Amino acid sequence: MTRYDTAFRAAVEGAEVAQRLFRTELDVETKSSKMDFVTRADTETQRRVIERIRDDYPDATIVGEEEDELKSVPEDGNAWVIDPIDGTTNFVRGAQLWTTTVAAVRDDETVAAATVAPALGDTYAADSDDATLNGERISVSGRTDLDQFIVAPVLRYGSERDREFGELLRELILRFGDLRRFGCAQVTLGMVACGTLDAAVSTQPNPNPWDTIAGVHLVERAGGTVTDVEGSPWEPGCEGIVASNGTRHDEVVGRVARAVR
């Protein structure tokens, strides 16, 4: 069983657990803020994903959003990065834009990723070479006119940094063709990978690995470019994220940078 196969199966089986609980009566708790939700769907989904991974790799190192799993990716060795429900606010409100996501990492390099959006009927996946959507190979858009770019902000920062987030939104709407915000980082990055969006950006420092790693891998395997907000190669824990189709990436970085000056 390859790591790609395991990541794919774990994401699919986890998503099945979450989908069964979607739009049902759930007790909703909050974590760090009034808009940071968690339900038993998150914990039960994560447990199912871990069970599937450990069926194939009993000694697997797990990095996961919920419970007591690691919260950062080890620099050496193999690890599995899990987001049982990315877009929990959407999930809680009954909106269909949420995913179950699994990435396999070896020595700090992503080797496989799967993002399943069961309520949308979409499954994104990538091995070391290609990215697919529902089994069909995908690529980023070929658009070059920034005035026609559709750009999505990802990773809202919390109420204490709402002013900064507002500045980012202002810059995006002024300097690109249009913007979208979906409230689910992984599905947003998947949309960049398949060309639905031309870029996705965040100026949030130290974005969580479960919010980013799988989607970054999808974009890169689909031919896109991903950096931090300074234009340096993206890696977990860096400053922000700029993921684009690559045609005008430096200019996208420059326009996003204006929002944090």
Rank of each mutant, 00 (worst) to 15 (best):
7 A>L: 04
9 R>A: 14
10 A>T: 00
12 V>D: 00
12 V>S: 00
14 G>R: 12
18 A>C: 03
18 A>T: 02
19 Q>F: 15
20 R>N: 13
21 L>I: 11
26 L>I: 13
26 L>D: 09
28 V>G: 15
29 E>Q: 08
29 E>K: 15
30 T>M: 10
30 T>H: 14
31 K>R: 14
33 S>F: 05
33 S>R: 05
34 K>T: 14
36 D>R: 01
40 R>K: 13
42 D>P: 07
43 T>K: 13
43 T>V: 15
49 V>G: 08
54 R>D: 01
55 D>R: 14
58 P>L: 03
61 T>H: 02
67 E>Y: 02
67 E>W: 06
68 D>R: 13
68 D>W: 09
69 E>M: 06
71 K>T: 07
75 E>T: 09
75 E>L: 06
76 D>Y: 02
77 G>E: 04
78 N>F: 10
79 A>G: 09
79 A>S: 14
79 A>L: 01
82 I>M: 05
87 G>Y: 04
88 T>A: 03
93 R>T: 10
98 W>F: 11
105 V>S: 07
109 E>D: 15
109 E>L: 11
111 V>K: 12
112 A>Q: 12
113 A>R: 06
116 V>Q: 04
122 D>K: 13
124 Y>F: 15
124 Y>I: 08
125 A>N: 08
125 A>T: 10
125 A>W: 02
126 A>I: 14
128 S>H: 12
132 T>G: 00
134 N>G: 13
135 G>M: 14
137 R>V: 14
141 S>Q: 09
142 G>F: 04
143 R>Q: 13
146 L>R: 00
146 L>Q: 03
147 D>I: 00
151 V>S: 01
151 V>P: 05
151 V>T: 05
151 V>A: 00
157 Y>C: 04
158 G>Q: 06
160 E>K: 15
160 E>S: 15
161 R>G: 02
161 R>N: 11
163 R>I: 12
164 E>T: 11
164 E>C: 02
165 F>Y: 13
168 L>W: 07
173 I>S: 13
174 L>A: 14
175 R>M: 07
175 R>K: 15
178 D>C: 05
179 L>W: 11
179 L>D: 01
181 R>A: 15
182 F>P: 05
184 C>L: 11
186 Q>T: 05
187 V>F: 00
187 V>N: 05
193 A>S: 11
193 A>P: 03
196 T>H: 06
196 T>M: 09
197 L>W: 02
199 A>M: 06
205 P>K: 01
208 N>L: 14
209 P>R: 10
210 W>L: 06
215 G>S: 13
218 L>I: 05
219 V>M: 04
222 A>M: 09
223 G>E: 11
225 T>V: 15
225 T>H: 03
226 V>Y: 05
226 V>K: 08
228 D>L: 07
229 V>G: 03
230 E>K: 14
231 G>R: 04
232 S>M: 12
232 S>Y: 12
233 P>L: 00
234 W>V: 10
236 P>M: 05
241 I>F: 07
243 A>T: 07
245 N>F: 08
246 G>K: 04
248 R>M: 11
249 H>T: 03
251 E>T: 14
252 V>E: 05
252 V>C: 13
252 V>W: 09
259 A>P: 05
